[in-house]
Write a protein that binds this DNA or RNA. Structure first.
Lengths: 125, 125
DNA sequence: TTCCTTGTACTAATGTCGTAGTACAACCCC
DNA sequence: GGGGTTGTACTACGACATTAGTACAAGGAA
């Protein structure tokens, strides 16, 4: 279960941010599905060698965002993807902006669009 | 000149880490070459709206790493070749981090990884 | 020599992060 | 009801990041 999420200790990003991102990606990539239970706060803290409060902070934030649902005494579960409140056009526009920035940043690293796509596809498989 | 480096305020990574990365990658990508002068500590601080000490910290670290050479009263100059500033592995890792952030942000909009890939492919042909 | 520019050094303050430890409420099972 | 598990809340602390402000040393130009 600990292999679901990894955080790179050499990455200077704050731990809570890395963990939140890892959990979001696990869900978006299908490794975690609606109804799946996340590791307990205490277990994940042990697995990742971090403090339980740090895990709890992330779980709380993900619950606030509607990504998970938590129940005391039971655990924390991935919720079904709800239909988004924002309209499809808004979301599509936002996605496009994200794409633009991503592709620009990758270009600044010297990667062409084709290289980026190839890298993403390879990574997903 | 300020367009040489950008740091994304929404990225939770510490500022000094983001700036160091940006400078290293600017060199690795060829946007900065050996002999080029970096912006002054004060100028870059103004451009990026951060404190000059934070810039100075990065410049000091880059000098310790042998990437730049600094002279008081004169300025800070690139001395490294592209491969010294950032290896291919560094660039790949950076791309992966960009991907992580991009995919997590898209997930926050409700898009799965598959959906994002399809959107990108369709968009770019 | 003087003046300006540049990097460096330093102090103090504030906020953020991560932690350890503890306790309690909610839940489940016997 | 009792025991175990789970998430939440809280305090206190140290480390770190960032800042503002200041001063000085080194360098260059006039």
């Amino acid at each position: 279960m600990a292999n679901l999420f990894q955080i790179d200790p050499s990455d200077p990003t704050p731990i809570y941010a890395k963990l939140e991102r890892a959990i979001r990606l696990a869900i978006a990539s299908g490794r975690l599905n609606a109804g799946d239970q996340l590791p307990t706060v205490r277990q994940l803290a042990v697995d990742l060698r971090i403090n339980a409060n740090t895990v709890a902070k992330v779980y709380a934030e993900l619950e606030r965002a509607g990504i998970v649902a938590t129940r005391r005494g039971v655990g924390t579960f991935v919720v079904a993807r709800r239909s988004q409140a924002a309209s499809t056009r808004d979301r599509e526009r936002e996605l496009r902006m994200l794409e633009d920035r991503f592709l620009a940043d990758a270009a600044a690293l010297g990667y062409s669009v084709e290289e980026v796509l190839h890298h993403l596809i390879k990574r997903r498989g």
